[in-house]
Computed example of a mutant assay.
Amino acid sequence: MLRAVVGRRVRRAVQPCDLVDYLNGRLDGDFASESVEVTNVWTRLRTATRRIRPKMAVGWALDADQQPQLQLNASALQVKDAEAALTHAIRGYFRQRLLNKPDQGKVYAVTSASTPPNHFMRSGNFTRFAEWRFVHRARLDCVPLNGSRRWGNGVKACRRCGYENETLPHVLNHCKPHFATITRRHNAVLGRLVKALKPSSGTTVRVNQTVPGFNDGLRPDLFILNEAEKTAAIIDVATPFENRYAAFEAARNGKKVKYDHIASHLRQQGYDVVVDAFLVGALGGWDPANERLISQLRLRRRYCHLMRRLMCTDAIRWSRDIYVEHVTGQAIRRRPSQP
């Protein structure tokens, strides 16, 4: 049937190379004549090939038997794998376009790096409709705020604290009137982490308390000390905004510098010290470096699978509450422990 379709187009004896040229959408030479064929599976395949070629390197070539064979990135595709390979390539193309956008791509550069931030996409587990409606617009930086205007000369200052640019990162992480709710978001993540701890005998766990022997006012979220094994861990929880992964790296390095003097003192006493940060983004981003910390703390593996999802959901829920408080001016009252 393909030969018949090509023959009606070129109006001469069909050669094997003509089949490939037709499927690749050639429009010069013999293929420049006006089309007389009716729509069929081959004309649709030709059109589809031309349509997706600007997005990825797809085309047709002759195989060893002089038959047309579809190729993707110069590699031949088997018939049974062609649909899956093309679908994967198209998704990768549009995903990269999104990541390259200066505003819309910065959050997805983080949330697309692991599974927990997107666990609710198919099932909606642990997620209310209110969070569902908020998080997708928020991750695309499409929520209505003064600083999010793409045109016009309207006022961009924060409506609550007067900061010069009312952007979503400012509202969720830096606006002073919301510091109490921001702290509750932090505590929700910390509570999940504390619940996952299973300290061995002889281990002391101090939550949000000063380190014994230091009166500098610093209170790490978790200070774990084991006198018998001479080990210590200083862990701080943070919920930075997902301004690409560089924001997570900056937050982690800042925590290490903050407690470096305490770690140095403990090392001088012979302790093996771990200083690290546990990071969950304000919009549910998960730092893959958390996995190293989970292993070092010997957290319960069965619970950790659920914990990752709950932490991301908690961050989204509290961030949505912060945004609603900011826009409406009315605080949302609910218990921090609400599942």
Rank of each mutant, 00 (worst) to 15 (best):
133 R>W: 01
167 T>P: 02
179 F>M: 12
87 T>E: 14
130 A>L: 09
177 P>V: 05
107 V>R: 10
185 R>H: 07
177 P>M: 01
128 R>N: 11
338 Q>I: 12
282 A>R: 01
81 D>I: 04
129 F>H: 12
333 R>L: 15
71 Q>T: 07
88 H>E: 15
113 A>N: 08
285 G>N: 07
276 D>K: 00
321 D>K: 02
289 A>I: 08
260 D>G: 03
217 G>F: 06
291 E>I: 15
87 T>S: 15
176 K>P: 10
274 V>K: 07
1 M>Q: 04
246 A>F: 01
237 V>K: 03
19 L>M: 06
86 L>R: 00
300 R>C: 10
197 L>W: 01
80 K>F: 11
310 L>Q: 13
218 L>V: 11
158 C>N: 07
207 V>Q: 00
281 G>W: 02
128 R>S: 15
56 M>P: 00
202 G>T: 03
313 T>K: 06
2 L>H: 01
72 L>I: 10
80 K>I: 10
70 L>A: 10
164 E>F: 14
232 A>T: 09
310 L>W: 07
242 E>P: 01
237 V>H: 00
317 R>T: 13
180 A>V: 14
222 L>F: 05
308 R>V: 00
259 Y>Q: 04
41 V>Y: 05
330 Q>F: 09
300 R>K: 09
95 R>Y: 04
268 Q>V: 06
96 Q>A: 13
116 P>E: 06
262 I>T: 00
186 H>G: 09
227 E>H: 13
72 L>R: 08
308 R>Q: 12
268 Q>W: 08
262 I>D: 00
202 G>C: 02
25 G>T: 02
127 T>G: 05
80 K>G: 03
257 V>W: 06
105 G>Y: 04
103 D>G: 06
170 H>Y: 09
81 D>H: 13
178 H>M: 07
312 C>K: 05
306 L>K: 06
295 S>H: 14
123 S>R: 08
62 L>G: 10
90 I>W: 03
37 E>G: 01
45 L>S: 09
26 R>P: 01
292 R>S: 14
56 M>Y: 06
60 W>V: 01
191 G>Y: 07
198 K>F: 04
54 P>G: 07
5 V>L: 04
306 L>M: 09
6 V>H: 03
85 A>N: 11
145 L>N: 11
46 R>H: 03
92 G>Q: 11
